[in-house]
């Protein structure tokens, strides 16, 4: 309620930019949802992320950065949702963009963006070891957080891996 009322006064520059984004990548942008005047969620078609991120980074070379890459496991839908979060930080255009892309859970393969954004190196590794999302073209896809002797093909943040619920009295 409170959050929704804020959306009305979206700065002109932001709405113009989002229009431009929609025009540039017509069918690759499935939907745009403006959450607050400075946040927007963009649903994009599969395998179009690299193109869009490259366009954003070329346009705002001195004022944008990749915040993080996140994966959400929708086991009931049979999808992984990849979220690329990008911050545009110009003086008159401040916008936090979340690019959401669905990839099938059975074959989680996407193209790497490390050649466009070198800062994605660690984030891609993390999503690989935690969810098993394979980033094709990544220079050194391997373990970052998990120990070296962690078994292959076990991805701890996937929903099928459960926590043991053992409650013991500690004295």
């Amino acid at each position: 309620m409170a959050a929704k009322s804020k959306v009305r006064n979206v700065p002109e520059k932001v709405s113009r930019f989002l229009e431009e984004l929609r025009k540039e990548f017509k069918d690759k942008i499935l939907s745009i949802k403006v959450l607050t005047p400075i946040r927007a969620e963009v649903k994009i078609a599969r395998n179009s992320h690299k193109q869009i991120i490259k366009w954003l980074r070329d346009r705002f070379a001195e004022s944008s950065y990749l915040v993080t890459i996140n994966t959400v496991d929708y086991i009931d839908r049979g999808d992984f949702e990849l979220q690329y979060e990008i911050q545009l930080a110009e003086d008159d255009l401040k916008l936090h963009l979340t690019l959401k892309m669905d990839i099938p859970r059975a074959n989680p393969e996407v193209e790497t963006i490390t050649d466009v954004v070198p800062g994605a190196l660690l984030y891609e590794c993390e999503n690989y070891e935690m969810f098993g999302v394979r980033f094709i073209g990544h220079p050194a896809l391997g373990k970052v957080f998990l120990p070296e002797d962690w078994p292959d093909n076990v991805y701890p943040l996937r929903k099928e891996v459960k926590l043991i619920k053992k409650v013991k009295k500690v004295r």
């Binding site: 957080f145 998990l146 120990p147 002797d149 962690w150 078994p151 093909n153 076990v154 701890p156 099928e160 891996v161 459960k162 926590l163 043991i164 053992k166 013991k168 500690v170």
Partner: peptide
């Protein structure tokens, strides 16, 4: 940076046996 225990995970599909601190 590291945030995230391996100690409590039950790895059902793998062969690795994990242990509790106890």
């Amino acid at each position: 940076t590291d945030r995230t225990t391996v100690m409590l995970l039950d790895v059902e599909s793998g062969t690795k046996k994990t242990m509790t601190i106890g």
